[in-house]
Design a protein around this nucleic acid. Structure first.
Lengths: 116, 116
DNA sequence: CAGTATCCCCGCTGATACTG
DNA sequence: CAGTATCAGCGGGGATACTG
């Protein structure tokens, strides 16, 4: 671990990933191109408003690509941009730690049980 | 990139890292043990209340260790727990991406300038 | 179908004052 | 020094209704 100002540069990543629905959206987009309604159906409880705003932010950051088909009824497809795929290592690292963290929590609970 | 339910497990990591001051606190604790006042002085604009609550959360998650010295005036030292060091790969991945993201943004701005 | 437009609430955060 | 206690503000997010 370096001790210089390195870790000041984690904010952009945090900004891209935080937001109540970003991770879920990214998760489904990593599976491939999705329509607006597909995303809405895949993610329980999300409102159109939230889905729209989160997608717009991801689009703004060049993570997500938005393609509008000029047909009636409207059809809009969302997919990860090439740049969007570059966040994968972060998600991987978070996933890995998440798994061990779950084990950590379980172990902790068992220890607490034994102690009581 | 695997296409199964893997990425559902990133939430714990996000939970540990989000919060307005967590990253800053972690950043300084990666440098070594710090007293409460040292952290407060290192992080501009943070209030005691916020510093306390964020540290309490990190402590709750076993990331941060809190040692109270029973002296007058009080002395409390904070440091990363051994488990706390396990978040380093995440911070590294985020840092790495953050650096390229900054370049990405600069490149984008230059392209926009040329186009106008 | 894929969004906007409004209204509203609650919880995070800040400011300030107090304390062992 | 290292915190609590209390009050107040603001904005992210939810519910609902409307639209091209």
């Amino acid at each position: 671990m370096k001790h210089d100002l390195e870790y000041c540069t984690v904010e952009p990543a945090l900004e891209v990933l935080t937001g109540k629905w970003k991770i879920s959206i990214l998760y489904f987009l990593f599976q491939g191109t999705k329509r607006f309604s597909e995303l809405q159906n895949s993610i329980p409880n999300i409102t159109k408003k939230m889905l729209t705003s989160q997608l717009r932010e991801l689009e703004e950051q060049d993570i997500v690509r938005r393609v509008v088909y000029p047909v009636v009824p409207p059809k809009v497809e969302y997919s990860l941009s090439e740049y969007g795929y570059s966040v994968e290592p972060i998600l991987r690292a978070m996933h890995l730690w998440g798994m061990t963290h779950i084990k950590h929590i379980q172990l902790k609970r068992e220890i607490q049980k034994v102690q009581t």
